[in-house]
Simulated assay, not measured.
Amino acid sequence: MTVDVEVEVAERPGVGVDGKPRPSEDVVSVLPNAVVLLDGATSLLPGLRSGGWYAGVLAGQLAGRLTGYPDMDLADLLAAAIRAVAREHDLTPGESPSSTVALLRWTDEVVEGLVLADSPVVADTAVGVRVLEDDRIANLRRSGPGYRRRLREGAGYGEEHVTALRSSATEVGRFRNTDDGFWVAEADPDAAYEARRASWPRGTVRRILLASDGVACGVDDYGIFPDWDAVFAIAADMGADAVLDAVRAAEESDPDGARWPRPKRHDDQALAVVAFR
Rank of each mutant, 00 (worst) to 15 (best):
T92K: 10
P93I: 06
G94F: 08
G94S: 11
E95F: 12
E95V: 06
P97T: 02
S98M: 04
S98W: 01
S98D: 01
S98P: 02
S99A: 12
S99C: 05
S99V: 00
T100V: 08
T100A: 09
V101H: 07
V101R: 02
V101N: 03
A102Y: 00
L103F: 12
L103H: 07
L104C: 03
L104E: 04
R105C: 09
R105H: 05
R105V: 06
W106D: 05
W106I: 08
T107Y: 06
T107W: 08
T107L: 05
E109P: 02
E109K: 05
V110M: 13
V110T: 14
V110G: 05
V111T: 07
E112G: 03
G113N: 08
G113W: 03
V115P: 08
L116P: 04
A117R: 07
A117Q: 11
D118E: 07
D118G: 07
D118T: 06
S119L: 01
V121I: 09
V122P: 09
D124L: 13
T125M: 05
T125K: 00
T125L: 02
A126V: 02
A126D: 13
A126M: 02
G128N: 10
G128C: 07
G128E: 12
G128K: 09
R130Q: 15
L132K: 11
L132F: 12
E133M: 11
E133P: 04
D134H: 09
D134G: 11
D134F: 10
D134T: 05
I137G: 08
I137F: 08
I137N: 04
A138C: 09
A138L: 15
A138V: 14
N139H: 15
N139M: 11
L140C: 08
L140F: 11
R141V: 13
R141E: 15
R141Y: 08
R142W: 12
R142N: 13
S143W: 02
S143D: 13
S143K: 15
G144C: 12
G144A: 15
G144R: 15
G144L: 13
P145N: 13
G146I: 11
G146H: 14
G146M: 15
Y147R: 09
L151C: 11
L151Y: 01
R152E: 14
R152A: 12
E153K: 10
G156E: 09
G156K: 10
Y157N: 04
G158E: 01
E159W: 01
E160A: 04
E160W: 03
H161E: 06
H161G: 02
V162E: 13
A164K: 02
A164E: 09
A164L: 15
A164N: 06
L165V: 03
R166W: 01
S167C: 04
S167G: 01
S167Y: 00
S168F: 10
A169N: 02
